[in-house]
Amino acid sequence: MTSFSRISISTALIATLCAPAVFGQELNVATNNNEDDEIENVDTVARPWQQHRSVALLLGTAGIGAQGNITLSKSWGIRAGFQIMPAFTISQDDKIGRTDVEHKYKINLANIHVLADYYLPFAQKIGLRVTGGLAGFVSAKANVVSVPIGEYYYGDIPINDERMGEVKTKVNRSGVAAYLGAGFLNLVNTKHFGLSADIGSYYLLPAADVEMTASGYLSGNERNQEQLKENLKGYRWLPVIQLGFHYKF
C-alpha cells in the first residue's frame, strides 16, 4: 500500500477520533459559553437538510477531487463530482510456478460520479447516510512491468542484464461503475465548513481489457494474456475510504 493511501486512512481516523461527536446525539461545536445559545445554534446548523449547498474537496483512496453537494430533504441528498488518483507505482513480489517475479504496477484512476444519499432517521445530526450511485471511470488502468527475480544463467553465462527483457501488461477497466457505501456528512459542522467521511466500494462493470507483451528472453510469456483475463473476472470491487472538506454556502 502506498504512503499516499496510508496518509488518507490515517487522516480519516485521526479526524474521526478527534471529532467531538456522539452517536445519535446532537453535535456540540458552538463557541459561545451560553449553554442555551449553544443548543439553539447546534440545532440550527446540525440538521443536514438545512445545508442546502456545499462544495467539497475530496481526499481518499479514489484520489483527490471536488464535489458539489445538495441536500434535497431531511432524508435525501445528491452529490456529483470528479476524482483523480495521481499515478503511483507500487512493487509486489510474486511466485509463478518456481519462478520469483517482481511486478511493478503503475495505476491511474479518474472518475466522474453522481451519487444519491439517504440520511437515516437516526443520527441525522451527524448525517449518517447510505449512498448509491454511478461513476464513469474515464481512466481505470494499471500498467504492470514484470521481471524475474534472482540470478539466471544460460549455461555458464549470467543473463541478468538488459537483454532479459520484460513482460508488460496493460489492464484497462475504464467505463461505468456502480457505487454503494455509507458515511457521515457532519463529522465536523460549522456555519461554513464541514467534514464528511465515507466508506464504500465501486463495482466496475466492464470486463478487463488486457494487453500483454513480452520482450527479450521473456518473449512468449504473452501467452498468459487470456489466463490473466480469466483471473481478473473476479476483480470488480474498488473500495473507497475518503474525507470531504466542505465549504457551505
Binding site: V101, Y152, G200, S201, L218, N224, Q227, N231, G234
Partner: peptide
C-alpha cells in the same frame, strides 16, 4: 466491517500462468 463483506475472495492474477525465461544469448 460491513464493507468488507463486499470484497470477494479473488483469484491471484497470475494464477495458472506459465512463466518462462528463454534466452537467445
Amino acid at each position: 466491517m460491513g464493507s468488507a463483506l463486499f470484497f470477494t475472495q479473488c483469484k491471484k492474477p497470475s494464477q495458472d500462468f506459465d512463466f518462462s525465461v528463454n534466452a537467445d544469448v
